[in-house]
């Protein structure tokens, strides 16, 4: 079994659905940082069978909205002195601004710079369904 050292101060993004770790790693631009970061893939999990984990040896702001969009299974653990001091469960965001575009080519948010794409969650069934604030079209964001 691969052994990775625990972190002293930082964040552990745990319970990532197997296969989504790389996407989150890229979305957080962790490939460009100069502090220690580990992406663990296909880690055995009693709950999910297998999971991905990201460990970050630094206190950074993670975008919970973006993480919720990609994978609502995620748990964020805040680590201090190698101990978990806070655990947060990510949720599918009820409102999203500027993270993706409306799929309707006739929507004003695809042509006017002033129109920041804004969405509200209306339902989800494997894919989150967001309704555009401007044109009210449903836009799915692949989880």
């Amino acid at each position: 079994m691969l052994k990775v050292e625990s972190i002293h101060y930082g964040i552990v993004i745990d319970h990532i659905t197997q296969g989504k770790g790389k996407k989150i790693f890229d979305k957080l631009n962790l490939g460009d940082v100069d502090y220690p970061v580990v992406l663990l893939r296909n880690v055995p999990s009693s709950k999910y069978g297998k999971k991905d984990i990201i460990k970050i040896e630094n206190c950074i702001d993670v975008d919970m909205t973006m993480l919720g969009l990609i994978d609502s299974n995620i748990t964020i653990n805040i680590i201090e002195n190698e101990k978990i001091i806070n655990k947060m469960k990510v949720e599918i965001p009820k409102e999203v601004q500027g993270l993706f575009r409306c799929k309707n080519p006739r929507c004003i948010s695809n042509t006017e710079l002033y129109a920041n794409p804004s969405f509200k969650l209306v339902k989800f069934n494997g894919t989150a369904e967001y309704v555009c604030e401007y044109c009210e079209e449903l836009t799915s964001y692949p989880l």
Partner: peptide, 10 residues
């Protein structure tokens, strides 16, 4: 009146 949907909202 506008051809783009959501223009009056904006």
């Amino acid at each position: 009146r506008h051809p783009k949907e959501g223009a009056p909202k904006l």
